[in-house]
């Protein structure tokens, strides 16, 4: 029983890390600019399709395709930021919702047009497949890899945010945008860079997600809810919050399914509602 509890914890944590990668970018940009970007998962989907194209059609190794998934999502997000998002910084939340939902619709249609409507396969190298036994418990190698990548990324993000000049500017902009502007920080540029980084991470998340949850043209819709849940529960603009919220949701989802399968889908929503009623600003939210 203890062994299986450990297994459930492990699987849940790995799933949570996936949610973390997919949502951390949105949390930071929402916290900074209050920009409601419902198209965040479209960038994740883009990253996924880039990896599929590179590995299946061009024969790239899986690992080599990951940086490109990140880069392409980041680049496309910069272009969109310039052309569309920038015009709506001062606009109402509702207008931002409508714009970004429009982008989701378009991205879903474009994905269906190019890639068709089937599930996209991804070929993992053999060293990422199968499972290894640790402490009498068989753990999926890919899940270990996923956790490793996420922890490295989290460490880099936190370090960059705490110890670099740019990180300080980001923190200032999240805490008090007006004051930051007053101090001469180019908030728009900081935002654009953060936005690109966040979208890039989503792209990477999308690429890593294929093996666990699959990828098709509707991905941008399917994961929107989960990403919003992580952002809201974690608290806006908080990397630590997203990390904790994502692990919590991943683990409780997995544990619920293992121990109380009859509760099934209820649990994750129930946990979210309960947490938000307890802390409306999210676990680590300040505003």
């Amino acid at each position: 029983m203890i062994a299986s509890a450990f297994g459930v914890l492990f699987d849940g944590f790995a799933y949570g890390m996936l949610l973390f990668l997919l949502s951390v970018g949105l949390s930071v940009t929402l916290g900074m600019m209050n920009f409601v970007n419902l198209a965040h998962c479209s960038f994740a989907m883009l990253g996924g399709f880039v990896t599929v194209t590179l590995t299946n059609d061009l024969g790239w190794p899986f690992l080599a395709s990951l940086p490109l998934a990140f880069l392409s999502a980041a680049l496309v997000s910069i272009a969109l930021e310039r052309v569309l998002y920038r015009r709506l910084y001062g606009a109402s939340d509702l207008a931002q919702c409508l714009l970004t939902i429009g982008i989701v619709f378009v991205s879903v249609a474009v994905a269906a047009y190019i890639y068709g409507t089937i599930q996209q396969p991804v070929n993992l190298p053999s060293y990422l497949r199968g499972s290894v036994a640790i402490m009498g418990q068989s753990l999926g190698v890919y899940r270990l890899f996923l956790i490793g990548v996420s922890i490295v990324i989290t460490a880099v993000l936190v370090a960059a945010l705490e110890f670099t000049r740019f990180g300080a500017q980001v923190r200032a902009a999240v805490d008090n945008q007006r004051m930051a502007r007053g101090l001469g920080i180019d908030v728009d540029r900081v935002f654009a860079v953060t936005f690109a980084l966040g979208s890039g991470l989503a792209g990477l998340g999308g690429a890593l997600a294929i093996e666990i949850v699959g990828l098709d043209h509707a991905f941008a819709f399917t994961y929107l809810i989960y990403v919003l849940i992580v952002v809201a529960v974690g608290g806006l603009g908080s990397i630590a919050g997203s990390f904790v919220a994502a692990s919590l949701l991943g683990i409780s989802d997995m544990a619920g399914k293992y121990y109380f399968p009859e509760l099934g889908a209820f649990l994750i929503y129930f946990v979210m509602v309960a947490l938000l009623m307890w802390r409306p600003l999210g676990l680590f939210g300040r505003r």
């Binding site: 459930v8 699987d11 989802d253 997995m254 293992y258 399968p261």
Partner: peptide, 19 residues
């Protein structure tokens, strides 16, 4: 066992079935 329609990660259910 019945798993949710929108389920994505099956490891918990499969573990249960295996047990």
């Amino acid at each position: 066992a019945r798993y949710p329609v929108a389920n994505q990660d099956f490891s918990a259910f499969v573990q249960r079935a295996k047990d």
